[in-house]
Design a protein around this nucleic acid. Structure first.
Length: 221
DNA sequence: GCGACAG
DNA sequence: ATCTTGTCGC
């Protein structure tokens, strides 16, 4: 499979792959290890990809991988994945603990063509995946004030409004995070996993740890 | 044409 | 994404 270099090819690839997404959980889905993936930027084209694997129950770090790379694809909302996928796949190649779930920094189905970064990662690897974004793509009603409160994330679709994800309050009173399915998991389970990964802070430990590692590299090497 | 627009 | 220490508030 050729990695697209133009906007048209990238859009075509998303349109083709979107049919592969499975938005349900296998009956025997067990999540014991979770990987957080993130990319940091030193300059416009110099990137550092990070993959941190956690024990899903204790949140202990089991493995950390950092890969430095360059990128040529520009940032375009909706085509974000083409900028970050190459380096993230390289980090996954080097991980020694197999993750049962991938947590991407961005959207999954909450995407103009229902195929955000989390879907790319899931479909490419076959590993269940979810997207946790700090900002929404779509509209939502403010969830309740308490941790665990949630509301639908909605986008315009072929049949009118479509529920593409959820606004989830991970701590009392904080701004919600935006959770959407990537692949091989259902939305309820995805939200439950995010809550389990965020016992103390707004963002799940996966993205927090991946994020700090990312800027550690950016400033020191 | 204008504004929106994950990281 | 990135610019970034002390500081305001619970």
């Amino acid at each position: 499979m050729e990695w697209p270099r133009t906007v048209d090819d990238a859009v075509a690839m998303q349109e083709r792959l979107r049919t592969q997404v499975i938005a349900t959980s296998a009956p025997d889905l067990r999540i014991n290890t979770v990987a957080g993936l993130d990319v940091g930027y030193r300059s416009n084209d110099s990137v550092a990809g990070v993959c941190v694997v956690f024990d899903a129950k204790t949140l202990a770090v089991l493995d950390e991988v950092v890969v430095e790379d360059t990128t040529d694809f520009p940032y375009i909302a909706g085509l974000f994945a083409f900028r970050e996928m190459p380096v993230l796949l390289r980090t996954l190649d080097q991980v020694t603990v197999a993750p049962d779930l991938l947590v991407a920094d961005g959207q999954g189905l909450a995407h103009p063509r229902r195929f955000g970064l989390a879907c790319h990662l899931g479909v490419h690897t076959g590993i269940p995946s979810i997207g946790v974004a700090k900002n929404p793509m779509g509209t939502f009603e403010q969830p309740g004030h308490a941790r665990g409160s949630m509301s639908d994330l909605v986008m315009d679709g072929d049949n009118g409004d479509e529920v593409v994800g959820r606004a989830l309050r991970t701590q009392d009173g904080v701004k919600p995070v935006f959770v959407s399915v990537g692949h091989k998991i259902d939305l309820d389970r995805a939200c439950a996993e995010v809550l389990r990964l965020a016992p103390r802070y707004r963002l799940p430990e996966t993205t927090r740890r991946a994020d700090t590692l990312t800027r550690q590299v950016a400033s020191s090497g």
